[in-house]
């Protein structure tokens, strides 16, 4: 076991690049080594470290579903040093991938329940992983609803998949954009996620709500869920913090005594409420 270097990434090739929104791209990555591909497995909710050799590593959740074999996908916004370098890579180029790290969404425990996904902006990618996982094992779950909001129509990611979800009879999709972010032909809702959620008025009965978004969205969404009757144990989210190692050693991602890289990134609201305000 000590023979294995936890800092050595897998080599992966960029098989496909999708431009999702301004500054936002999705990479489909394939393992260069068949043995790596065979050995690799992950579960919905986990994250990884993505390398650009010569620039460094950056952290995001795995955006593809474990039910889709043979590749992993990540979606990122160009922001810092490494994501900017990542955005310059082209299809066919080689990069590094280290993972999977962290805990997972408790999908087994959610069997037989209604699932309500609530996402904002660039926080849909971590949720997309679990959405496809659920849709690929659709028989295990009851009603599936997705509420997704972004600043503007252009900022909505996975536009093709939103269309596919919208067309499915077994998914209820509501998309919304912030006031002023709509286009003339926009058919979705206009308004912030919390208020659109309130109008959706989903039943809390036998339902799990999975919430991912910027802190301000989370802050205003939780009270709405409270009002709708969701108890803390029915609500899940993912946290992000600055990370380097991914395995609880480098010392920066802890929130109190809990490490986002080991104890998270998935936290139930019960666990979240036990954390100090340090994220």
């Amino acid at each position: 076991m000590t023979d294995y270097n936890i800092y050595l990434p897998y080599l992966v090739a960029i098989e496909k690049i999708t431009e999702e929104a301004p500054g936002v791209k999705t990479f489909r990555l394939k393992f260069k080594n068949d043995e790596d591909a065979r050995r690799f497995s992950f579960k919905a909710g986990q994250f990884a470290e993505y390398s650009v050799f010569g620039e460094g590593e950056c952290t995001f959740c795995i955006a593809s579903s474990p039910t889709r074999d043979g590749y992993v996908e990540c979606t990122f916004r160009e922001a810092g040093k490494v994501t900017s370098a990542l955005a310059k890579l082209e299809e066919g180029e080689t990069m590094g991938f280290r993972g999977p790290f962290g805990n997972t969404f408790p999908l087994d425990a959610w069997k037989g329940k209604n699932l309500l996904f609530i996402a904002g902006g660039i926080a849909l990618p971590p949720m997309r992983c679990v959405i496809w996982n659920v849709l690929d094992t659709r028989e295990n779950f009851k009603d599936v609803s997705i509420l997704y909001g972004a600043k503007s129509v252009a900022d909505l990611v996975y536009k093709d998949e939103l269309k596919a979800w919208d067309e499915r009879p077994d998914v209820k999709l509501v998309t919304t954009v912030d006031p002023g972010g709509e286009t003339p032909d926009w058919k979705g809702a206009i308004g912030f996620v919390p208020s659109v959620l309130e109008k959706m008025n989903p039943s809390a009965e036998n339902t799990i709500a999975i919430v991912c978004g910027p802190p301000v969205m989370i802050k205003f969404t939780f009270p709405v869920l409270d009002k709708l009757g969701f108890k803390p144990e029915q609500i899940y989210t993912t946290l992000e913090n600055r990370m380097k190692c991914g395995v609880g050693k480098c010392g920066r991602c802890n929130v109190g005594k809990m490490y986002v890289c080991k104890d998270g990134p998935v936290f139930s609201r019960v666990a979240l409420e036990a954390l100090p305000a340090e994220y």
Binding site: T2, Y4, N5, I6, Y7, G248, K249, K262
Partner: peptide, 10 residues
């Protein structure tokens, strides 16, 4: 710290 679940080879 270096051996918390995942041993650190270096």
């Amino acid at each position: 710290i270096f051996n918390w679940d995942t041993p650190d080879k270096p």
